[in-house]
Amino acid sequence: MAPKEVVLSFWAAMETNDFYLASKLLTIDCVVQWPQSHETIFGRENFAKINSQYPASGKWTFVLNSIVAERNQVVTDVNVSDGKLFERAITFHTVEDGLISKQVEFWPESFPAPEWRRQWVQVMGE
């Protein structure tokens, strides 16, 4: 599979909420970094365990907003929700030999638009 297809398959597997299935698209010794919390997950087994144990209010959903691929680098913008929590993940994937060997994942926190900018912007959803 091309790197883009590997990453699309990964998100499809994540959508099943079987994180051990999804982890099969990662190398055994993959590295997953979460820069905002300064954490690094080493290995697909730890990836599956942490995602399986992550507190959730319901089934996780993953909606792909965009994907950009160049050679073995793939970037995705995904909405993630458990029905109560609505977040967005920007993930940089490195694909080698048909598996994801590295992810650097950013979880930007949303915040209300400052009032002082109102005259120049339209707030999404209004």
Rank of each mutant, 00 (worst) to 15 (best):
Q122W: 08
G83C: 07
T61Y: 07
V80Y: 08
I28Q: 03
F62M: 01
A89E: 04
F10Q: 01
V74H: 04
E109H: 15
E115G: 00
W34Q: 03
Q53W: 00
Q122I: 11
G98A: 14
V80M: 15
F62W: 08
E70L: 14
V104Y: 13
K4F: 01
V104Q: 13
V95S: 07
E105L: 07
R117K: 10
Y54A: 07
P114E: 08
W116V: 15
P35A: 02
A12F: 03
R118Y: 10
L8R: 11
T61E: 12
A12Y: 03
A22G: 00
H38E: 15
P114R: 10
N17R: 00
V75P: 15
W116C: 12
N65G: 03
L85H: 12
F86K: 04
E39Y: 05
F42Q: 14
K4A: 10
Q36T: 06
E87S: 15
V32N: 01
D82C: 11
S52D: 09
Q36V: 10
E15A: 14
T27R: 11
T27N: 08
W11R: 00
W120Q: 05
T94E: 13
N17M: 03
Y54T: 12
I90V: 14
I41P: 02
S9K: 10
K4Y: 01
F42V: 04
V104H: 09
V63M: 07
N46I: 06
P108W: 08
A113H: 05
E96K: 14
N72K: 11
T27H: 05
W107H: 09
W107Y: 11
G58S: 09
T91K: 01
F10C: 04
V7G: 03
F106Q: 08
F86D: 14
T61C: 11
P108V: 09
L25T: 02
P114K: 06
V121C: 09
K59P: 10
S52Y: 10
P35R: 01
N17F: 04
R117E: 04
M14V: 01
M14S: 02
A56Q: 13
T76N: 00
D82K: 10
S52C: 07
L85R: 15
K102A: 11
T40N: 05
A113D: 00
K59E: 13
T40H: 09
T27Y: 06
A113L: 04
D77N: 07
N72C: 04
S101V: 15
P35T: 01
I90A: 06
Q122S: 15
P112I: 03
E15S: 15
V74F: 05
D77Y: 10
A2S: 14
I41Q: 06
S9V: 00
V121H: 06
M1L: 08
S110T: 03
F42P: 00
L8G: 02
A13E: 02
I90K: 00
G58Q: 12
V63P: 09
I100P: 08
T94I: 07
K102M: 12
A56V: 10
V63I: 11
S101K: 13
T76L: 00
W116N: 11
I50P: 09
V32W: 12
V32A: 08
E115D: 08
T16E: 04
A13P: 09
V121Q: 06
Q73G: 03
M1A: 12
Q119L: 07
W107L: 09
D97C: 13
A113S: 05
N65A: 05
A22T: 00
V95H: 06
